[in-house]
């Protein structure tokens, strides 16, 4: 029997991972993702482990390559959006992305609404981590932190433009703060990882 859940995690990647794993622990396995819809099917409790990865800075081709690689590893991979679809003309600019991924539009061959990958693995007793190498991990969080800076500036700009219309200014301020927090968290992670790295060496 399938079960539909409505959730939206935006940039809360870790919360999303935790939630998916808790669903698996309750005996539900992900079978389909929509914008805010998650479709689950019953399975043996705890049979699957989930990891969520940010890939919004990759070009379409690179994202496809990576997805294929993960599927070859025996994992099941789902696309997931990180934003809700508010941008006009169904087009977004990602100055932080690598070549070929900077402009993302709502065409088939694009990374639009595919900022995240949800990766599912059959549990084998070992922890499920996609990034294990410290340097690679730091690199990942570095990539993850950049979009938040842009987000923060966009919200600030929005707030300034709306001045002195307080309701919008407040929303924009909160948005900027949230983006700033995400950025700070990612940078903090990097610091921790580099520290660990030194200890190991």
């Amino acid at each position: 029997m399938s079960k539909v859940k409505i959730r939206f995690f935006a940039g809360f990647i870790e919360s999303q991972t935790k939630w998916l794993n808790s669903m698996s622990a309750k005996g539900y396995r992900l079978v389909k993702t929509g914008k805010m819809r998650y479709v689950f099917e019953e399975c043996e409790a705890g049979k699957y482990a989930y990891a969520v990865e940010y890939v919004g800075d990759k070009s379409f081709k690179e994202e496809e390559n990576y997805k294929e690689f993960l599927e070859d590893m025996g994992y099941t991979v789902f696309y997931k959006n990180m934003n809700l679809d508010f941008s006009p003309f169904k087009i977004t600019f990602r100055p932080w992305a690598e070549k070929g991924g900077k402009i993302s539009s709502n065409t088939k061959r694009s990374t639009y609404n595919k900022e995240l990958l949800i990766v599912e693995k059959e549990r084998d007793g070992k922890p499920f981590e996609l990034h294990t190498d410290n340097e690679d991990l730091a690199n990942y969080y570095d990539r993850l932190s950049v979009p938040w800076v842009y987000g923060c500036f966009l919200f600030l700009l929005w707030g300034i433009l709306a001045w002195p219309f307080m309701p919008v200014v407040c929303v924009a301020g909160a948005g900027a703060l949230l983006c700033g927090t995400f950025f700070g968290r990612a940078r903090h992670k990097i610091k921790q990882i580099l520290k660990n790295n030194e200890l190991e060496e």
């Binding site: 990576y66 690689f69 990034h131 294990t132 190498d133 690679d136 990942y140």
Partner: peptide
């Protein structure tokens, strides 16, 4: 490749798929 590394190191060195892809 992942299996080879795990096997040869007796599970000491475990490589995540993302890190392997990057490498």
């Amino acid at each position: 490749i992942m299996q080879f590394i795990e096997e040869k190191t007796g599970g000491r060195l475990v490589l995540g798929a993302g890190s392997l892809y990057g490498a």
